[in-house]
Amino acid sequence: MMHHTTKAIIKRELKSYFTTPLGYVFTVIFLFAIGYVTFEPGRGSFFVMRQADLSSFFRYIPWLFIFLIPSTAMRLWAEERKSGTIEFLLTLPVTVPQAVLGKFIAAWIFIALALLGTMPIVFTVAYLGKPDYGVIFLGYFASLLLAGSFLAVGTFFSAITKNQVVSFILSVVFCYIFLMAGSPPILETLSTLFPKYMVSLFEELSILNHFESMGRGVVRLSDLWFFGAMIVGWVYASMSLLDYKKAN
């Protein structure tokens, strides 16, 4: 089903996450950070709430992803263009969409593996009480979709520049805008400038609203559509951009 070139790129990329320090650094930071914020000894924490669920875990996921995912995505194309390997890669019998897809999927698989590394937290919760496994499963599913959306944004900004730092900053800013699109301060500011329907349209673009709605254990078709559109839209934009800009 998948083209052999896309498969070959996925394999190569996945391997490179584990032959360079990048993969380990990412996984270690992510696991430490998520473990800390889940069980941190403050108000609203897991032990104070005395509830066997992962609400604190999923509450912090977007705020870790907003930095960690752009840091994985920034190198995807920026590095390839800076070192000139893009010329080697794209003169092999492969199309730009096949190559973009390969790199995107590999990064997504890598993040899925890092998420899988948080399973001990689920086991801890299961040991301490009787959590709702449906809600936990949906929480993970939503996290994966969130990761895919941020990754798609990151891929786009990695294709826009050769400079990884610029690519990182731009993706964090854009991920933040999408994450916070539904927050009251932003909506209030907008409502002084734009008509009401534009404001509610903007509110619909809020990643956080869609993420939290899935985290409550309900799957709305609109949430799935939203994440699907985010991922497809940004990945497609990356393909067009790269085709246009690859040589500059």
Binding site: S16, T19, T20, S83, G84, T85, E87, F88, T91
Partner: peptide, 9 residues
């Protein structure tokens, strides 16, 4: 290609 770009890792 010029300068022989390769995947160095």
């Amino acid at each position: 290609p010029e300068n022989a770009p390769l995947y160095e890792d």
